Simulated assay, not measured.
Amino acid sequence: MPERPAIREQSVTLDELTGLFPHWTFWRGRSTGLWSALPPRDLPALRLIQSPTLDDLAALVAKALGRPVPAPAAPRVSWRLDENSWPVRAGRRAVADALDMWKLERWRDDALTVTSELVTNAVNHGAPPITLTLALVTPEYGAEPELLIEVTDASPEPPLQRAPGDDGGFGMTVVNGFANVSIAPHGHGKTVRALLPEPGTPAA
């Protein structure tokens, strides 16, 4: 039986990090898995900074610049899934554990279905490493909170969008029935984002 991936708190996303430090260059090493931050040329006294997580990297960059990094209030966790050790089952268990910990069990069924389909798609049609992220998103203007599920892999190819048939093809169709889906390609692959509304509310 696969072990549950350890919950790793990750409050800062790559987009947020780029916004906080717009003149820095950030990337993740494919072989090492380490995040790197390269300072701009007008800061010659600073050197390359590396860390296994974006949170730690943000803290190190902020420390080098003498700046604080605000931490978002909404919970956010990420897991690195081992593609050779039942990643779909491990991802489902990790999501279930996090939702229980956050007292968000009302999303459990929908979230586990979406997690299964997105991780399966990444395993079958993407490339390692595969990272699963779960976050609670609170929109502005008093709107209802939404649950964000992201799956990142190293392939730039978008998920297969094909008509369901005897040989499969139901994955993204199922996900679109539960969530608003977007695909964000980037320098080290792509991230598929599924935003789940409050249970009982249809996806837009």
Score class of each variant (00 low, 15 high):
L60P: 00
E9Y: 03
R193M: 14
P22K: 09
E146L: 05
A64C: 08
L148F: 08
P202T: 06
D110R: 04
T201Y: 08
E105N: 15
W107E: 09
W35S: 00
I7Q: 02
G168Y: 01
F26W: 06
A143L: 10
G29T: 14
P75G: 07
H188T: 10
V151I: 13
L48H: 15
P156T: 06
R41E: 09
L148V: 05
A184S: 07
G29K: 06
A45V: 14
P2V: 08
E83T: 15
S31A: 15
P197E: 14
A59V: 14
R193V: 04
V77G: 04
E198W: 03
A163I: 13
G200K: 02
R4G: 11
T133C: 05
D55E: 14
I149M: 14
S116Y: 12
A194D: 10
E140N: 15
P202G: 02
T133R: 09
L81Q: 00
P44Y: 11
L134W: 08
P87N: 05
E16S: 09
V12E: 00
A154D: 12
A143V: 10
S155Y: 07
V137I: 15
Q161E: 08
V192W: 08
T53R: 01
P199S: 07
W79C: 03
L132P: 01
L34S: 03
H186K: 02
D153A: 03
V175C: 09
R92F: 01
T133N: 09
V181Y: 12
S78L: 04
R162Y: 14
I149S: 07
M1E: 13
D82N: 15
V137R: 10
V61A: 03
K103G: 12
P185F: 02
D97C: 10
M1I: 11
S116E: 13
S11M: 09
V77E: 03
P22C: 12
A96I: 02
D110V: 07
P22Y: 05
